[in-house]
Design a protein around this nucleic acid. Structure first.
Lengths: 342, 342
DNA sequence: CTGATTTATGAAAAAGGTTTCTTTAAAAGA
DNA sequence: TCTTTTAAAGAAACCTTTTTCATAAATCAG
């Protein structure tokens, strides 16, 4: 049951490795291998269950058929469903993926990038943490196929796929205004990443247009969950006039919902709620939670398509294109006017 | 900025590849490389940012420092959090992971196994689908380090890590009995996998001990979500006397909760609910959902430890050990007696 | 001073493929 | 009949490392 190599086959059949390699790679015809020989080799290879060693293959050809995927945290529902779709799409096209969680840590990310490069992945799909501009630029310079998603660096000409964060946040905030909420808070991460900045801008724009005050609370990025709950609880406690909250990420939303529950505030009567990123169970909540849903499948398959294009077309053409997809506001009970102000 | 190889360094420094390799692998001393030479090489390697090609290294040494992880579906919260912890643990010990979703499909799984073998992963952590006994046995035969989790094949002597499914299900059902529910249904997957069988047995044992009738509904494995909802809705509609449900997986639980909502049944008054596998948001539900929580971290780190032990100790010793971890019943509002029968 | 060690380094093989270049024999063209 | 093509297959280089073995000089024992 030991694994059989191409050399083994060649020796056993008394032919050269060359011939075997040609046949097994479907290049028999163009290299004038006789039909008899072709069949003999094919048959024997199948019989012994030959599988080429991909390391050797990758070493020689420079192609590994592996894509490196880097997300912030694979246990986050948003990222895990994106990754799932990426995996599916890539698999269909004959690619495997290796992935990792960056934890939004630039140091870890840089390490991981080196690891992936040294494993000669054929391309990258990355949700980059802040502070890795240089590394991304250098990937680009070395001509490595690369797609960023969820966030990107505006002054690096990569291929990106994101949702229209500004418009989505604006729409979400506007929706709360329509529903008669008058003191709308925006709870977000203290982050310079562009998706967060855009969501913030969208919120502020909506407030300005409606001549409402800004109520912005920025939570440090690495704060553990229990503290997030406490922090939001304290914030809402100290600002009792706030009658609605827009959460910029589902991580914050979870903490926020817990805080609201702890404060015994009734949704949507005492507090309207809209959340960035839908979660499977939000629909089943009582009341159901209004959410901005990103188009997971589209994001993932666009990213894969863009990447595979770069890979196959020898890159250097479709790059520097930011694909902006629309997000959907799922209007559910947690923000409904009729319920809010009877 | 092109990548520099060991050969490049050797040529540039006018030394042999051997010397460079020894130095860079910390084997300078034992191979009598002079301190001056050592420093020169180290310094230059750092200057040009040398990173060894892992493909070549793996090809030569047979070690890749990569672990293959196969789960049913990476977008399932249970599996994604397990995977996250596996990743963390493995990373700390210098291992990277490649993972894939088997979709519980034996054919896809067999393919993937071949892929991983041909990439020479150092070991496997697998939640196996049904029907891959032969492949698992052959992995074992070829001496490949391997750990199964979540489910396993009782007559294959692998290392396994699971929770005590029988006792957990028994405890969950018993808990419903204590809370005065009298017609308790068990909604599960139509699956021969041993974790499902054990949960079923645990439920039946509890019913028998309390002289209650079995109400078992098996849902086909590959049924799409919307149909799951319909099916459960129909089942509960046709069996109106059922006053509590134990769901054997969170996938079914999601569908079941939606069905219960559609039927306008009040939890826990009209229907007690206990769910296998906790989800982050169950705590925040109204009413909060009672769940059997598996010890994610322990499962993952036990699996990694067992695997790494096999790898480093040249395997063949700790194998054939099934580690059974306890699960926790998180008693929340969806199954509480006082609320149920006022 | 000679033979045995030790020190410091390099040459070459090996891992398992792919690919370019040859080689040999047969077929085709002149 | 002699040269040119083409068919069929093999030899060898190459991708990048690791590792065994060899070599030369220096040191040491006697």
């Amino acid at each position: 049951m030991k694994k059989v190599s191409l050399k083994d086959i060649a020796e056993r059949l008394n032919v050269s490795k060359t011939t075997v390699s040609f046949v097994l790679n479907g290049k028999a015809k163009e290299n004038h291998i006789s039909e008899a020989m072709t069949q003999k080799i094919l048959h024997y290879a199948k019989e012994v269950g030959y599988m080429p060693n991909q390391l050797a293959k990758g070493l020689r050809t420079g192609e590994t058929k592996i894509l490196g995927v880097m997300v912030e945290d694979i246990s986050d529902p948003f990222f895990s469903s994106i990754t799932r779709t990426i995996e599916e799409q890539a698999y269909q096209k004959g690619y495997k993926i290796v992935y990792c969680s960056t934890e939004n840590d630039p140091v870890k990310t840089k390490e991981l990038l080196e690891v992936y490069k040294s494993r000669q992945v054929d391309g990258f799909i990355i949700a980059p943490p802040p502070g890795v501009e240089q590394e991304v630029q250098s990937l680009l310079d070395s001509g490595l196929p690369l797609v960023l998603f969820d966030r990107y660096f505006p002054n690096i000409p990569t291929a990106n796929v994101v949702v229209d964060n500004l418009a989505s946040a604006h729409r979400a905030a506007q929706h709360l205004v329509f529903n008669n909420y008058r003191q709308i808070a925006f709870i977000t991460l203290d982050s310079e990443q562009n998706q967060m900045q855009e969501r913030l801008t969208g919120y502020m724009k909506a407030m300005d247009e409606n001549e409402q005050k800004h109520h912005i609370r920025k939570i440090p990025f690495d704060m553990p969950y229990s503290q997030v709950v406490q922090t939001i609880e304290a914030y809402l406690g100290q600002h009792p006039f706030i009658d609605a909250v827009l959460f910029s990420t589902s991580y914050l939303a979870d903490g926020g919902l817990e805080a609201i529950k702890n404060l015994n505030l009734r949704i949507p009567h005492d507090m309207g709620v809209v959340v960035f990123d839908d979660e499977k169970l939000f629909r089943l909540f009582t009341p159901s939670i209004t959410a901005v849903a990103q188009p997971i499948k589209e994001i993932a398959s666009t990213a894969v398509d863009l990447l595979l294009n770069q890979i196959t077309s020898g890159q250097k053409q479709l790059v520097n294109k930011t694909t902006i997809l629309p997000a959907t506001l799922l209007e559910r009970d947690s923000s409904v006017a009729a319920l809010a102000k009877p």
